[in-house]
Design a binder for these strands. Structure first.
Lengths: 146, 146
DNA sequence: CTAGATGCAAACAGTTTGCGTCACT
DNA sequence: AGTGACGCAAACTGTTTGCATCTAG
């Protein structure tokens, strides 16, 4: 029973209409393994609603992301960004303005996999995004909330 | 002196022709702060070569990335990917096939900023990409190198 | 009944490609 | 001289938007 009522509860909590399309998109994302793209979700949803529009899928993905029902895999999905800094370093990523600030490697405690881990993956390096709100945005927010 | 000869050395080492356009693009990327987009680089390069084509800028960025002269800020710059996994976790990212595998949070030693750090950034969470070669790709490579 | 959701097509942004001409090596 | 680079325009992919119609609340 929980699947349907989960969905309705989520919609109520976020002030969203519980439409059929929205529900199928939600269930499809939950059912797909890994990190599906909009196109993948669209293909899968069409098996249940052949007449659905790709725009509807995009609009609902956006809606779910904005209400925090789903997350984006990465904050870097936009256009290609070039990194000239050859020193190993990490990034501070602001969720508000999407700005990226370099963080020197020694500003972070060393990152390590627990030695129990293997899976045949050959590690080359660790790239850490410190996700949060930058100084500028948190000040701007403080003002707007007066 | 080193700037020009740096560039020529890089070109020789990577088997690239040392053209004027290529040099200006290289110098521009090195001079720009942060993580410029192709468009930003193009705008800046045009100050020195007004007739340059955007396609040339793109082609050269690709060339530099492929030869490792520059890096991409992130391996996630493609299309939007949706993450339904609500549990905190990290990612194994394969540089060869670009696949993304979830890594449970407890498979990594806890990530921490050194307490000296501040800059007014409000940290929400750490998103770690363990960058390397996945099992499938490393096996494929072993075979192709026979 | 009405705000918000859907479907369609057109618009857009970012990026790549084909091809004729030009320039490094 | 020949291979690869450039410039241009057209093509392409991923995504958003405007608008008329429909539907959940």
């Amino acid at each position: 029973m929980s699947s349907t009522s989960d969905f309705r509860g989520i919609c109520i909590r976020h002030g969203l209409a519980a439409t059929h399309q929205r529900q199928v998109i939600y269930e499809t994302v939950m059912s797909l393994p890994g990190h599906p793209s909009a196109e993948t979700i669209y293909e899968k949803v069409r098996e249940r609603i052949p007449s659905i529009s790709l725009a509807t899928v995009y609009k609902n993905i956006r809606t779910f992301l904005e209400s925090g029902v789903f997350q984006e895999v990465s904050f870097h999905h936009g256009s290609l960004r070039v990194e000239a800094n050859r020193r190993p370093h990490h990034h501070l990523v602001c969720t508000r303005c999407r700005s990226i600030i370099d963080l020197e490697e020694d500003e972070l405690e060393p990152v390590r996999l627990r030695d129990t881990y293997a899976r045949g993956f050959q590690v080359q390096r660790f790239a850490v995004d410190v996700v949060g709100i930058c100084d500028t945005c948190s000040k701007a927010e403080a003002i707007s909330q007066k």
